[in-house]
């Protein structure tokens, strides 16, 4: 049984935890960039009038959305080095897994954002003599982006939380670091509660700004 709470444990662990947080933020940031990039491509493919293209994109999205992220992490952790024929380090394998996985979720958000702009807006653009490209860039996408910004942010918070799953392959993110220290010092209460508080504060700030954005942009 435990004798009292020892705040010093957390204080001494701060430098290591900070390293872990940097890893988490790095993975989150890169995964968001990659996920949004491929997600946009997938969304445009899903909205394509070529049946085979939209079918492929839809299958990709539905397939990845049916899988647990942990399984996808295992897949890529196992498969990427085999495919490349050489080890490239856990970080890149996991990064690829996150990008591929999150792209499926971002795709649906971006697609809904584009579709939320009424078709008559496209017609209005054409009626003014704008080309397809101009209509998309100047009229549709700015509106779509506004509409989907809060949801994109919400998804990115989920993604930030999801990075904790790299624990299953032993990469030293924030949570794994906390876990390692808690094992070393036998202080699970302090470290996991601290980790929970840190995640909670970051995510709460994120979800509150998502809500504010939502209110600001719904007119």
């Amino acid at each position: 049984m435990f004798g009292g709470i020892d705040y010093g444990v957390v204080e001494r662990a701060l430098p290591l935890l900070w390293q872990g947080m940097l890893f988490t933020l790095q993975l989150t940031g890169l995964s968001i960039c990659g996920g949004v990039f491929f997600g946009t491509i997938l969304a445009l493919m899903r909205l394509s009038s070529f049946r085979s293209v939209s079918f492929f994109a839809a299958s990709y999205v539905n397939f990845f959305r049916s899988l647990p992220l942990i399984l996808v992490i295992f897949w890529f952790y196992f498969l990427v080095p085999k495919l490349l024929g050489r080890p490239i380090g856990g970080f890149y394998s996991v990064l690829i897994a996150f990008v591929m996985f999150e792209a499926a979720y971002y795709c649906e958000i971006i697609r809904a954002g584009i579709q939320s702009v009424t078709r008559t807006q496209v017609h209005a653009g054409y009626a003014l003599g704008l080309t397809y490209g101009q209509t998309m860039r100047l009229i549709i996408l700015p509106q779509a982006f506004r509409n989907m910004l809060p949801v994109l942010l919400t998804q990115s918070i989920i993604m930030f939380q999801d990075t904790s799953l790299v624990y299953v392959v032993g990469l030293k993110d924030f949570l794994t670091t906390a876990d390692l220290i808690s094992n070393r010092d036998n202080r699970p209460v302090e470290l996991f509660v601290f980790a929970a508080i840190v995640y909670f504060i970051i995510c709460l700030i994120g979800s509150n700004s998502a809500r504010r954005l939502q209110r600001k942009y719904t007119i």
């Binding site: 939380q161 949570l175 929970a196």
Partner: peptide
């Protein structure tokens, strides 16, 4: 909603009994 599920799992498993 604002704490990662894995952290919650560890809280339930390692922290709550303590």
């Amino acid at each position: 909603r604002n704490i990662p599920l894995l952290v919650q799992l560890f809280l339930w498993y390692f922290v709550v009994p303590e």
